[in-house]
Design a binder for these strands. Sequence first.
DNA 1: GGGATGTTTCGGTGGCGACCAAAGTGTTTG
DNA 2: CAAACACTTTGGTCGCCACCGAAACATCCC
Lengths: 246, 246
Amino acid sequence: MATKVFVFDGREGKAQADAMKEGPDISRLSALIGDPARANMLSALMAGKALTAGELAYEAGVSAATASGHLRQMAEAGLIEGVSQGRHRYFRLADEHVQRALEALMSLAAQKGHLRSRTGPRDPALRAARVCYDHLAGAQAVEIYEVLTARGLFAASSQGIALSTPGRAFFAQAGFDVAAMERARRPTCRACLDWSERRYHLAGSLGAALLQRVLDEGWAIRAPDSRVVTFREGGQGALAALLQLG
Amino acid sequence: MATKVFVFDGREGKAQADAMKEGPDISRLSALIGDPARANMLSALMAGKALTAGELAYEAGVSAATASGHLRQMAEAGLIEGVSQGRHRYFRLADEHVQRALEALMSLAAQKGHLRSRTGPRDPALRAARVCYDHLAGAQAVEIYEVLTARGLFAASSQGIALSTPGRAFFAQAGFDVAAMERARRPTCRACLDWSERRYHLAGSLGAALLQRVLDEGWAIRAPDSRVVTFREGGQGALAALLQLG
DNA sequence: GGGATGTTTCGGTGGCGACCAAAGTGTTTG
DNA sequence: CAAACACTTTGGTCGCCACCGAAACATCCC
């Protein structure tokens, strides 16, 4: 017993483990996400809409008191942000980093067979076209992204993807202020993994601008209490014409 | 009180929450990752090397008995895989999906200020060049990726990035069997977020082939007990010449 | 064979945290 | 102003899980 490598008495062990950590503290955030009630809240927030504390309590299946505690913890950890509005308090995911990490976890869980049920939203309208944060998602959005990609409008960049030279010209000609977008800090283009389709769609400031255009032009309207995007008669065609699809 | 929206009695709430889940069960895996001991083990495995149960127990700062239990749980959940070799049992991350999810969590934790200490590995040699799974990582790898990207060798694809037409020609001419890679199921190119640099480097079968070439040609050697890659005299230049850098 | 080393199983202990009810704070409505 | 509503805080209970020691396998080395 002379050469025992390390001793545990419940205290030294902990201290050593602490000293050993060098990377980011992955466990704190994961433990937060790991509670079923909190995970349900986060999943509900993945839709991109802000929800009240009461709605989140309902989603999680816990009492308002318990939910409040959970929300405080997640807000302190930087996973979510809450803004008070009257007697309600609205919560949303803090930023897209959180969204991306949750996406990765959901994708992993699905791939590992740890899924609780079917993939993605069951509502056909949701699968077809919906809002993801501030851009368009769903089968249509995936299709659009793939067609544009096949046309060579996006190039790989050190940050992910970016507009290629023809892409820059194309979107400028389509009426987007590409130059302003590329000056801003936010990435112009980002490939965002689609929740229901498991393929990519367009995000970033260009993706947001595209959704804005669709709504501004009245080609589609956003349902007030869901993230469904409903195209009006001719809206699809107008969007296809703008992007010169097929 | 006629229109009370929902009732909690502690049992209906739970049942309701279960029925409500539709997405993947994100909480199970997150709870596993959320324990500090398990998170330390996973962080240690992020280097890509297989480690024995004892080594992982030491990394986590827990007894061998406790570690064994943790490892069993993570293996059952599909996070890690263990192979017995003699009286040792070697564990590694199950696949690159796990790696990607952990990367996303580490990135998020770092960005949220939840880091326990400095970013990435402290060892300068590790920061410069190391192995990430089966490809090259570190400052050099990031630099290489950015130069190649700036030359337009990669294009955005529906799967992430892919070889552009000039890229395909370039690598074929450099002696890589590009056609075979693109026939295989594994993505030829993938942008992998670099642990220490926080920027992308090249992964996928092309990234693996590149590392293989570097090792085969004797331009660099892989240290036996770490993931450091040490370039020999002239190795850097030979690699730069192959890729026509600078 | 025997002894050292590595890993797992078993039994029992302890502590952390999720949970709710009830009371407290702030906001809207009548 | 009072009453209803939305949320948060407090106090206390309970269950789960990480943890260890000891013992049981398993494997290698001499």
